[in-house]
Design a binder for these strands. Structure first.
Length: 372
RNA sequence: GCUGAGAUGGCGGAGCGGCCAAUCGCACCAGACUGUAAAUCUGGCGCCCGAACGGGCUACGUAGGUUCAAAUCCUGCUCUCAGCA
């Protein structure tokens, strides 16, 4: 109902990106197996870094010395920092031995260290501001998929409480640093509530009252590996138009196509990078980039690069791709690199998959333009 | 030539009378991966039938033998490796 007005750009300190956009995950300030030059060559213009992992692992002085995570990586694209909320779900709730959550924050047990490392919503915002992120995501309480309604209710309430604390901290920092609406980063509220529309609505209404630049659709559950389009549509339909709508952790190419139709404009996912290292590549079912048809239900296929049958194949991985891997090397060479276990195999596969995703976003934008 | 050790599934390598179609690793095949505790994890891997429980067949260099029962014990043969000539 409210999604008629969509923002057109993601504005950041070095420019603006046309939406929708996909941010691959550089969790620990690196796209695994790639350096920033590789990344740029894939025409990826934004990445997601992770507060929890960097906060835990990074030297405390280097960020201010470097002038933020972007300069540190020598990456001048857009940077979103995730809050650490996902780690509440993926680490603590999946395995209670790893920590616990209360209203104060998330308490993580760190290997080889006594006691707990506590990440509060305020810590998360502060650290993200130190990172120099272009979008600060508030810490949220994330339930494991399949959680009961009362558990989800508790998480929603805590998510709202944390959102409120985060917003306050964010505003304080902006005042202190003299950041205005024009030059401050975006701040994103995260909508929890599992598969319960009542809870989603409750969460949305509370967050809208607090005031954010956009909303993240979080804690989404998969049905047979597919995003729950019923809930994601409900969330899209019940959030105010004109604001950024971010499908956190989404996802498969077909899900990105589907959710961008619903109004989501920002996506991130580990799939292209992790899959590449795990020997799953994405290839368009087309002979050239021009011929790619994302409206077709089977517009792409998986390609397993290390199969024996590719060892003597001199053709490229994909003809509908202009990445380094496809333009310069053969299937046979890539299969050989995987076979001998060289790191370059993961690198070339990652480069290709990221270009697949950047082409996907180009195609979606193209489609949106022609629809108008 | 003598002495010693050994020959196991595509490879390496366990097993040393029954619970062995045979631990395990590699290779190979298939599957999973969604705000990265993940260059990871799961499954299959002699042949045939079966969705599965399971059943049948052929197998531990080779030819015999002992035994109710042998990859496992005994003998001959072939080959390999090490030491000595």
């Amino acid at each position: 109902m409210l999604r008629t007005i969509k923002p057109k750009f993601f504005k950041y300190k070095n420019g603006k990106l046309p939406l929708p956009v996909f941010f691959p995950d550089a969790t620990r300030a690196v796209i695994r197996s790639l350096d920033t030059s590789d990344l740029e060559a894939t025409k990826t213009n934004g990445i997601l870094v992770n507060t929890f992992h960097l906060w835990k692992d990074m030297n405390k002085n280097i960020l201010s010395k470097a002038g933020g995570i972007g300069p540190f990586m020598d990456f001048d694209g857009a940077i979103i920092s995730d809050s650490g909320g996902f780690q509440v779900g993926s680490m603590i709730k999946k395995n209670p031995g790893v920590g616990y959550v209360d209203d104060e924050g998330a308490h993580f047990k760190i290997d080889g260290k006594k006691g707990y490392l506590t990440l509060t919503p305020e810590d998360s915002v502060r650290f993200q501001m130190e990172l120099g992120s272009d979008m600060v995501v508030v810490l949220d309480d994330f339930d494991a998929p399949g959680a009961a309604e009362d558990e989800n209710m508790e998480s929603v309430k805590r998510t709202i409480l944390w959102a409120e604390k985060s917003k306050k901290e964010f505003e304080n920092i902006c005042v202190k640093k003299k950041l205005t609406k024009k030059n401050r980063p975006y701040i994103l509220g995260v909508i929890q509530g599992g598969r319960y529309k009542r809870l989603r609505k409750y969460c949305i209404d509370a967050l809208v009252d607090l005031g954010f630049d956009g909303f993240g659709y979080g804690g989404e559950e998969k049905i047979k590996g597919m995003v729950n389009h019923d809930i994601s549509k409900f969330v899209a339909d019940n959030t105010p138009g004109g604001l950024l709508l971010y499908a956190l952790g989404v996802g498969k190419p077909e899900d990105i196509v589907a959710l961008s139709k619903l109004g989501y404009t920002i996506f991130d996912c580990v799939l292209p990078t992790r899959d590449a290292r795990h020997k799953r590549m994405y290839v368009y079912n087309a002979d050239s980039i021009e011929e790619i048809n994302i409206k077709s239900p089977d517009f792409y296929s998986f390609y397993t690069p290390d199969k024996t049958k590719y060892l003597d194949d001199l053709s490229p991985v994909s003809k509908a791709c202009d990445c380094v891997t496809c333009t310069r090397y053969s299937r046979g060479y890539l299969a050989h690199l995987f076979k001998i276990g060289d790191f370059t195999a993961g690198r070339l596969a990652t480069i290709h998959n990221l270009r697949f995703y950047s082409i996907l976003m180009e195609k979606i934008r193209e489609q949106n333009r022609s629809r108008k």
